[in-house]
Design a protein around this nucleic acid. Sequence first.
DNA 1: ACGCCAATAT
DNA 2: AATATTGGCG
Length: 308
Amino acid sequence: MREEDSNWFSKWEDELPPPEELMPLSQSLITPDLALAFNIPSAHHQTPPPPPSHPPQSTALSSQPNSSAEFDSPELSGAGGGGGGGSGAAGSDEPARTLKRPRLVWTPQLHKRFVDAVAHLGIKNAVPKTIMQLMSVDGLTRENVASHLQKYRLYLKRMQGISNNGGAGNNSPAALSASGMDPATDHLFATSPVPAHFLHPGRPNSEHFLPFVPVAAMQHHHQMPVVGPGQHHHQQLQQQFRHFGSSPPNGQFENPFMRQSQPQVQRIGTPVHSSNGSGVPPAFGEDLESATATNGRKVLTLFPTGDD
DNA sequence: ACGCCAATAT
DNA sequence: AATATTGGCG
């Protein structure tokens, strides 16, 4: 009889679903806004802005990990009283108006996407709104981008100053950030190589002829920037936005990803500008790249432009 | 309404 | 420290 015990345990253990499958469940059990509205501590996620109608993006970072992309609850609020929020909550729109989104965590990858977007838009067109659209990361707001952009510009300025002052030859991100000028966000910024033309204003570059692919196309639907043809890396992007919640004692949300220690370098690619005809709007970027462990600040930046 | 920036708040 | 928010201005 004893043997059976150990046996059933094994079996039981065997059938345990992977964590990935559990996560989404706990998330969709209650809509973020609802949770926040009701002050439920475990409530994670941001909350969709009160969409008078149905704003395209801006919310719905539900979805779930790589495993099954089928049962996502796309429209958390946009659906109108239908699917997602249909948990039975009645007039839940009232409090939703006052809710605050969690702070966005700019992971190296998210930043990478940002940089790519700016790079491909050209500095002239790289304004918050456009950048945001190009990035097509759901939940990302214009203000998120604007704020980030502001800081990024300062960073670029700093870099220019340095490079023409004596830093020539040594303008590797690490070195620059080490300059100790404004260590604020530099660590983040340093995780993504700065395209050369950012530093040389006034010079035409040869990177992006992107005919302004209005990623907005996807807006009327849900989900994320599922990118081109055989790519599968975008998963990560989803992931970072997905669980905002595990609010650390700080109130921020972390994504279980880069924050820990997973210097996983994926492939470096170039923007995908070819539509795949898959029905999904060809967002552009999709590459993931350097990763940093903000913990041990291990900035590994390998890059195509690397003259190393 | 958007964008930019500096300052300030969290 | 890293983001968000605000206020003043084009």
